[in-house]
Design a protein around this nucleic acid. Structure first.
Lengths: 201, 201
DNA sequence: GTCTATAAGAGGATAGAC
DNA sequence: GTCTATCCTCTTATAGAC
């Protein structure tokens, strides 16, 4: 199927927001990056820039929800799994030249106290990550309360370390943050992933 | 001493950046919030908005460097101290109605891949936090390597949890993130603060 | 659904009197 | 060092032909 104009616009917006955030993103940049003329953009997104950002954020969030299950799949011990996840993130970030990995947290920081509709979009992404993560770790044998605490801690630490790593151009923050979170959960066993099981998405 | 115009402008810029970040901050807002006319602002900051943001970020960073020593002063065990610090942050944030506490991380996220001078200003703030924190925990009896790892982990986790807490309007992320980091360092003793010792600033 | 042209305003920054 | 008036660009968004 040919990718629709709508999707092209959203993809361009996600890429641009990873670099520029929300406020510094202009419709002209979206025009240039997507190839869609301004009239088409407003045809598909009548509410303009805010609507594009909201949908782009949600799309982007869905894509990242699959990352933790993917990284954890082979792991049978929680602490080791967390260390592996952060080490993987550190390597990815270094290979990408410390480009931003994900716009959600960047945009959330910009708008949490100044743009309620966008704040709600970001909140829904975080909420979905937490819900899916809790379900995932519960399916791997953790009690629900512990499962939720683990996901929240991983996301907070990872997002904070992403910002610091990008700013300092160093993977040290990711490795240090990963070790710190992992230590608390060393020795906790993870059930193996049932054969043929699907990602939660 | 009467507070100079320069300081008034910087203070206004810090407050505005906490709410709006960097890109969405306008000179007109700085004019309104500081009371200084636009001409005076460019007299004091000839390089304009970017220069104001750089200096505001650094000023703001210096102020926050004192927080960890303050919160940790009474603590004699590292894990408990970390839990206390995050609990304190959670209470502060709730009382403030989930307003942003500190613009450094928000702005760092916006500019890390798009505005090199501002990225460097943010990097210098993070770097100072790490250096001062390493010195502080070392003075409390931790080996330098461990001291540095602890500060980095605390800052990453705290900054990530701030964003999530503001976005979700909940202190749960701060408490969960704090517990996760603290667990790794439970049982590590802190030397008492020497009587009459000064903060590192 | 696509595209061009343009409106209406806000943006950062400057000039120059005081 | 303060302040007003203004410049020019870039912004979001719309109108309306195709």
């Amino acid at each position: 199927m040919a990718r629709g104009t709508r999707e092209t616009i959203l993809t361009a917006a996600i890429e641009l927001m990873r670099v520029h955030g929300y406020a510094a993103l202009s419709m002209k940049q979206i025009v240039a990056a997507s190839g869609a003329p301004i009239g088409s953009i407003y045809h598909h997104f009548p509410e303009g820039k805010g609507q594009i950002a909201r949908e782009a954020l949600v799309n982007s969030g869905v894509a990242y929800a699959a990352v933790i299950p993917m990284v954890m799949a082979e792991q049978l011990e929680l602490g080791a799994g967390i260390r592996a996840a952060f080490a993987q993130a550190a390597d990815d970030m270094e290979s990408a030249g410390y480009a931003n990995m994900c716009p959600v947290s960047t945009v959330a920081g910009e708008v949490a106290n100044s743009d309620e509709p966008l704040r709600l979009a970001a909140a829904s992404v975080f909420g979905d990550w937490i819900t899916l993560g809790r379900m995932y770790f519960h399916s791997r044998g953790l009690a629900e309360d512990l499962a939720e605490e683990v996901v929240i801690a991983i996301i907070c630490s990872l997002e904070g370390a992403f910002v610091m790593a990008r700013t300092l151009r160093s993977k040290t923050p990711l490795l240090a943050a990963g070790r710190a979170v992992a230590g608390t959960y060393d020795g906790i066993a993870l059930l193996p992933v049932p054969a043929g099981s699907q990602t939660l998405l």
